[in-house]
């Protein structure tokens, strides 16, 4: 069929011209997004860097814009370094716990659940992932409160002594679960768990059934198959999930504000330097910690193949 091209409008001429100039077409497509990303986001990152070379005037509390290394000198104090270490420990613990909790559900969904059940699982995991983060943190304030459901439940079961033992443990305890490091840890794991389940699920889904059959045919027991076939293929998925759980724990300041014993975390320190203290230069310099820790983490994760599993 021949199209009736009686007139060629301006759009035809423009698109014809663009067709013969792929570079111009590329520039037009990329121009606006790049301008946005490089201009707004890249520019902000540069502003962040330059801000860290400013300092705060102790008397007036205003930002002094002469370049100095004073703020960086204030950054590497013992207390700030211990904040970074404590945050890294928490992020590591949360990541490991999330991997342990996520693996069985992902494994069950892939290996044993039928098509319908698998679709149901998928939605049931997505709902907590996408339903309001802030409200889910809040829900734990309701759950962990002294008069709340968890204490009520523990009381009904007569397990008070267990809870009291956990709360009186040094380092993780506190006056109540909602004011303890233990409670904080539970909430972190809860909030970021779906970010671990989905990549592990995706990695397990890519293990061909024929591998498992081959392994069984060659005489491997189920546990052997798991250890030598399934587990190595699941590691990239766990590594991919851990990027989320680790990075999100590292930068979070909402959970430490609402739940826990108010010991500072990296995110909380940045937040309060910026807000309460009004020391934007130190807050900017403080982002050095999460950026460097994440950089190291991403480098390691890449080596174990996390990016192929994202």
């Amino acid at each position: 069929m021949v199209t009736e091209q009686t007139t060629r409008g301006p759009i035809d001429r423009i698109s014809g011209a663009l067709h013969h100039r792929p570079r111009l077409r590329l520039a037009l497509l990329l121009g606006l997004p790049l301008l946005w990303l490089v201009g707004v986001y890249g520019g902000s990152l540069l502003a962040l860097l330059s801000q860290s070379f400013f300092s705060i005037d102790d008397f007036s509390g205003t930002i002094d814009r002469t370049l100095t290394l004073d703020t960086w000198g204030d950054l590497f104090t013992d207390s700030n370094i211990s904040i970074a270490i404590r945050t890294t420990v928490m992020a590591t613990a949360v990541t490991i716990a999330a991997a342990i909790v996520a693996f069985p559900i992902a494994y069950y969904a892939v290996r044993f659940a039928g098509r319908r059940l698998r679709a149901v699982f998928f939605v049931l995991i997505l709902i907590p992932l996408w339903s309001s983060y802030l409200v889910r943190v809040y829900s734990w304030k309701l759950i962990l409160a002294r008069e709340g459901i968890l204490f009520w439940f523990v009381d009904k079961l007569g397990l008070n002594f267990l809870l009291d033992a956990a709360l009186s443990a040094p380092g993780i305890g506190g006056p109540s679960l909602s004011a303890s490091a233990l409670g904080q840890f539970i909430v972190f794991v809860y909030i970021w768990l779906p970010y671990m389940i989905l990549p592990v699920h995706a990695a397990l889904e890519r293990v061909p059934t024929s591998y498992l059959e081959a392994s069984a045919d060659l005489g491997a027991r189920p546990l052997q198959t798991f250890r030598t076939v399934i587990w190595p293929l699941a590691i990239p998925g766990i590594a991919a999930g851990s990027i989320f759980t680790f990075s999100l724990t590292l930068g979070d300041y909402i959970i430490p504000t609402i739940i826990g014993d108010s010991t500072p975390f990296v995110g909380l320190a940045i937040y309060s330097y910026q807000g309460v203290a009004g020391n934007l230069p130190l807050a900017a310099a403080f982002t050095f910690f999460p950026i460097v820790i994440m950089g190291v983490y991403l480098y390691v994760a890449r080596r174990v193949g996390a990016f192929e599993a994202l």
Binding site: G251, G267, Y271, Q274, L280, A284
Partner: peptide, 12 residues
């Protein structure tokens, strides 16, 4: 990047 880095960058 952690959200707080983006936040402080924009704030800067």
């Amino acid at each position: 990047l952690p959200g707080i880095v983006t936040g402080i960058a924009l704030r800067s």
